[in-house]
Write a protein that binds this DNA or RNA. Structure first.
Length: 473
RNA sequence: GGCGGGAUGGCCGAGUGGCUUAGGCAAGGGCCUGCAAAGCCCUGUACGCGGGUUCGAUUCCCGCUCCCGCCUCCA
C-alpha cells in the first residue's frame, strides 16, 4: 500500500507520487507575524510536522519551506499604533513563533524565508506577469493582478468568478480595473511607517499579501513542486491567488494542496480578530508540551477540533497511558534496549498513516500494542516487552511523541527533580522498613503524605516507583 | 445568497452496506495488591430527523433541521 493524501484542488484522496523519486518539496504557509501565535496556529504547525515526518519515514528526502510574512497591513498598522518599528514587531513575534514550534517538538523546516528578504524575486515575478498581460500598474506604486486574464481563477476553492461579488466600494478609486483584482504591490501610504517601502519601476511600495509565497516557493522549490499546505482558511483568497500568480507566470506550481482544519474555541474558529485566543504559554502552566502536542496530533488533521482544557486533559490522560508503559519498560530495560527500530511499526499503524495520515486510527493501534506490552511486562516476558516498547517508541516517534525525545523539555518543577528524587527515596526507605515489619499504618501514612505533596507511589514486583501527580515523570 | 465540511454510545473520536460493528477518557464489576496505585479482564449496543433504494443502511440516494468554515484580514 502506498501513501494517499487528500488534495484540496481535486477534492479527492489521491495516491501520492513525488515529482522526483525519493524527494519531496513542500511549501507550508507559516504566519504573518502581526501578533503572538496561538494554539490554532500550532495545530497547523504540528499537522504539517507530522506529514513531514511521515514522508521522511516513507523514504523521502523532504525539503520543507515555511515562510514568515513579516510585512503587511496589520504589522504596519500595529507599528503606527504602538510606535515600535514594524520590523521589530515582526521579529519579536517571529521569535515567539519559533519558540512555540520548538516547544511542541516540531522539526525545524529546511528553510524559513522572510518576505522582506525576497523583494527582488517578487519584482521579477511582477515583471513577468505584466509582460504576459496578467498584471497592470494602476498608479504610482500600485500593481494589480488581472483576475479575468487567468482562466482557471477559482478552481482551487471551487468558486466561479461571477459568484464573487466583493463590495464595490473602491472600484475606480484605487485604479483597479475589476474589484476582484488583487494587489501584487502596494503603494506607500501617508499614514504608514515611512521606512516601509522599496523603490521599484512602478513606484515606491511594498509587497501585497500572496506575492511573497509565489516568489519564495519558486526561489527554493522551483517552478513546480510537490505539496503546498496551510490552514483551511487560506484556501481563498490566499492560495487561490498564489496559484493565479504562479501559473499565469508559466510555472507548474504545487501538485498537491493540503489544508488542516480549524481549531475552535467555544464553537467558533480561534482567531485573533475575534479575540477568542489561547496561547501556548498559558497552557504550559497546566500541561506539558508533549501532552499538548498529543492533543493536537491525535484528531485527523482535516477535522475541526474543539478546544477546551477538559478535552486537553482527556488527551493528556490517554497519552499518559502510553507514556507509562514506555517509562516502565525503560526502567526495566533501559532506553537503549527499547530504542525505536526501523520497520517496527505495526501494520495497522502503517496503513492508517498511509491513508491520508489517519492519526486517530494510528493512535488506536498504538494503544493496542501498549496493552500487549503491559501484559508482557506483568508476565515478565522480557523479549516481548522489549520489542513492543521499541515498536511503540518507533510509532510515537513518527508522530513526534516519543517520551524520550520529550524527556528533557521538563514539566512544572522539573528543575527540582534530582532533589525530589533523593528526598522521596529517603521516605521510601522508611516506608520499606515499616512494610517489612508489617506496620501498615506507618507505611500508608508515609505514602499519603507523599501523595499530598504531589508524589504518587506505586509498588511493583521490582520495587516502588514514584511519579508526579501532574503527569511529569 | 454561493461554495465546502460536519452531526456516532456519559464525553472525545475512527470507521463500515451485513462480519468479533476501532481506540481513548470517564463509570461499574473482577483479577492482582497487606491496602492502594498502575496494569490486565469484563460490562455499557451508538450512529441528528423523515422518506427512498436494498434481502439488509449508521454506512448509498432525496428532503429537512442544526452546527462550523470560506466568500473581508486569518493557520
Amino acid at each position: 500500500m502506498s501513501l494517499r493524501l487528500y488534495d484540496t484542488a481535486t477534492r479527492a484522496v489521491r495516491d501520492f507520487v513525488s515529482r522526483e523519486p525519493g524527494k519531496v518539496g513542500m511549501y507550508v504557509c507559516g504566519l504573518t507575524v502581526q501578533g503572538a501565535p496561538h494554539i490554532g496556529h500550532m495545530r497547523s504547525y504540528v499537522s504539517f510536522d507530522v506529514l513531514r515526518r511521515w514522508l521522511a519515514y516513507r523514504g523521502h528526502e523532504v525539503t520543507h519551506v515555511r515562510n514568515v510574512t513579516d510585512i503587511d497591513d496589520k504589522v504596519l498598522a500595529k507599528s503606527v499604533q504602538t510606535g515600535q518599528p514594524w520590523w521589530a514587531i515582526g521579529y519579536a513575534n517571529e521569535r515567539l513563533l519559533e519558540q512555540a514550534s520548538a516547544t511542541l517538538g516540531c522539526l525545524d523546516p529546511t528553510c524559513e524565508p522572510r518576505a522582506t528578504g525576497h523583494v527582488p524575486q517578487m519584482l521579477a515575478l511582477i515583471d513577468r506577469l505584466i509582460e504576459r498581460g496578467h498584471a497592470y500598474a494602476a498608479g504610482p506604486g500600485d500593481v494589480y493582478f488581472d483576475v479575468a486574464s487567468y482562466r482557471d481563477y477559482g478552481a482551487l476553492s471551487n468558486r466561479r468568478l461571477e459568484d464573487m461579488q466583493p463590495a464595490e466600494d473602491n472600484l475606480g478609486v484605487d485604479g483597479k480595473r475589476d474589484p476582484r483584482d488583487f494587489a501584487l504591490w502596494k503603494a506607500v501610504k501617508p499614514d504608514e511607517p515611512a521606512d516601509a517601502y522599496w523603490q521599484t519601476p512602478w513606484g515606491r511600495g511594498r509587497p501585497g499579501w500572496h506575492l511573497e509565497c509565489s516568489a519564495m516557493a519558486h526561489r527554493y522549490l522551483g517552478e513546480e513542486f510537490d505539496i503546498h499546505g496551510g490552514g483551511l482558511d487560506l484556501v481563498f483568497p490566499h492560495h487561490e491567488n498564489e496559484i493565479a500568480q504562479s501559473k499565469a507566470a508559466g510555472y507548474g506550481f504545487a501538485r498537491y494542496w493540503m489544508h488542516n482544519g480549524m481549531l475552535n474555541l467555544a464553537g467558533g474558529k480561534m482567531s485573533k480578530s475575534d479575540g477568542n485566543v489561547i496561547d501556548l504559554p498559558t497552557l504550559l502552566a497546566s500541561f506539558r508540551p508533549v501532552e499538548i502536542r498529543a492533543f493536537l496530533a491525535t484528531p485527523h488533521y482535516r477535522s475541526t477540533v474543539e478546544f477546551s482544557e477538559e478535552l486537553l486533559g482527556e488527551a493528556a490522560s490517554a497519552y499518559r497511558r502510553i507514556e507509562g508503559f514506555v517509562q516502565r519498560a525503560i526502567e526495566r530495560f533501559g532506553a537503549t534496549d527499547t530504542a525505536p527500530t526501523q520497520g517496527a511499526l505495526c501494520a495497522d499503524f502503517l496503513a492508517a498513516m498511509d491513508d491520508d495520515l489517519n492519526t486517530s486510527k494510528a493512535m488506536a493501534s498504538i494503544h493496542e500494542v501498549v496493552r500487549e506490552g503491559n501484559s508482557a511486562l506483568s508476565e515478565d516476558d522480557d523479549a516481548a516487552a522489549r520489542s513492543t516498547a521499541a515498536s511503540v517508541r518507533a510509532m510515537l516517534g513518527v508522530l513526534g511523541l516519543d517520551p524520550v525525545d520529550h524527556a528533557a523539555e521538563g514539566g512544572p518543577g522539573d528543575d527540582l527533580r534530582v532533589a525530589v528524587d533523593a528526598l522521596v527515596r529517603m521516605v521510601l526507605e522508611q516506608r520499606d522498613a515499616a512494610r517489612a515489619r508489617k506496620d501498615w499504618a506507618t507505611a500508608d501514612a508515609l505514602r499519603d503524605q507523599l501523595k499530598r505533596s504531589g508524589v504518587l507511589i506505586e509498588d511493583t514486583p521490582h520495587g516502588p516507583r514514584w511519579t508526579l501527580a501532574d503527569g511529569s515523570a
